[in-house]
Amino acid sequence: MNLNKEYWENRYQNEDTSWDTGSITTPLKEYIDQIKNKDLKILIPGAGNSYEFDYLIANGFKNVYVIDISSHPINKLRSKNPKFEKQILIGDFFKHKGAYDIIIEQTFFCALDPTLRNNYITKMNDLLKPKGKIVGLLFNFPLSSEGPPFGGSIDEYQNSFSKLFTTKILEKAYNSIKPRLGRELFFIFEKK
């Protein structure tokens, strides 16, 4: 399976988006609700329909960027948020340049081919400012070749991220949406 731009465009055009929750998920909403500094520079990679972007903008955050390889969800997002069009990017995350305080992870890591996981971790490190954080959700079920999504475990994630990041939180999400209950880990990894 080649998880390239065409693959994702086809999934969106055929409305084959079973991962799409239709709104921001509770763990991310509750995390965002406690952020006081609305000037933080935030990136949401592999954004898809990015309900997180909509929620952040609606709550006064103006320095929020999204990137996705697929034009379909990005064009939808741009039409809903024309004032932020320059912050809604079509492109390859691995070629993106920037410096962010927070990167929000919502189904992107587990949608990538597992062979790209080390590249993802390195790129996240490159995109974060000193002491910057990756915050979000990772799937908590066995990694297999069936996917996306591709799973993983607390031990796998801890081992993979620990070279470049300090684990602040990595635990079962207690407030997952019903279809994902018991299958998600909430995490905060801080750049070393």
Rank of each mutant, 00 (worst) to 15 (best):
Y157A: 04
D92W: 14
F141H: 11
G152K: 00
M124C: 07
F109P: 04
Y65V: 04
N75D: 15
T122H: 14
L138E: 02
L170I: 12
G147S: 07
D39I: 00
L40C: 08
I90N: 13
N10M: 03
T26F: 09
S153R: 11
L89C: 01
I121M: 01
D126W: 03
S50Y: 09
K41D: 03
S160Y: 11
I102C: 02
K172M: 11
W19S: 00
N59F: 06
D68F: 04
Y120C: 02
V64C: 00
I24M: 06
F165R: 00
P142N: 13
I67W: 15
Y100T: 07
F189N: 08
K129R: 15
E6K: 11
F186T: 08
Y51D: 05
D20V: 05
L181Y: 15
D39H: 07
Y31D: 05
I69K: 12
L3A: 03
I154S: 13
K133T: 02
K86E: 13
I69C: 11
A58V: 00
S23K: 15
K129H: 06
I32S: 00
Y12P: 05
V135H: 04
L40H: 06
N159S: 12
I44H: 05
D155K: 13
L185T: 09
D101F: 04
I90T: 15
F141T: 07
N4C: 01
A58T: 05
Q158S: 11
P45E: 09
F150M: 10
N14C: 05
L77C: 03
L28E: 01
N4G: 01
P149W: 02
D54R: 09
I188Q: 00
E190T: 13
R78E: 05
G98S: 13
S162D: 10
D16Q: 12
A58C: 00
L43I: 00
Y174I: 12
N2S: 08
G48R: 13
E190D: 06
V135Y: 06
E171L: 10
Y31G: 02
T167W: 10
K191R: 14
K192H: 15
Y100H: 08
K29C: 02
E171T: 10
G152Q: 03
R180C: 03
S153T: 15
K191T: 12
F53Y: 15
K83L: 14
K131Q: 10
K62M: 08
N119M: 11
T107H: 03
Y120K: 01
A173R: 09
I188Y: 00
Q34I: 05
I177K: 02
N63W: 02
D39T: 13
Y65H: 15
S160G: 11
S18D: 06
Y12L: 03
T115R: 14
E171G: 00
I44R: 04
D20K: 06
I69S: 13
K123H: 15
T25H: 00
N118G: 06
K172Q: 13
L77N: 04
K163V: 05
E156L: 15
I121S: 01
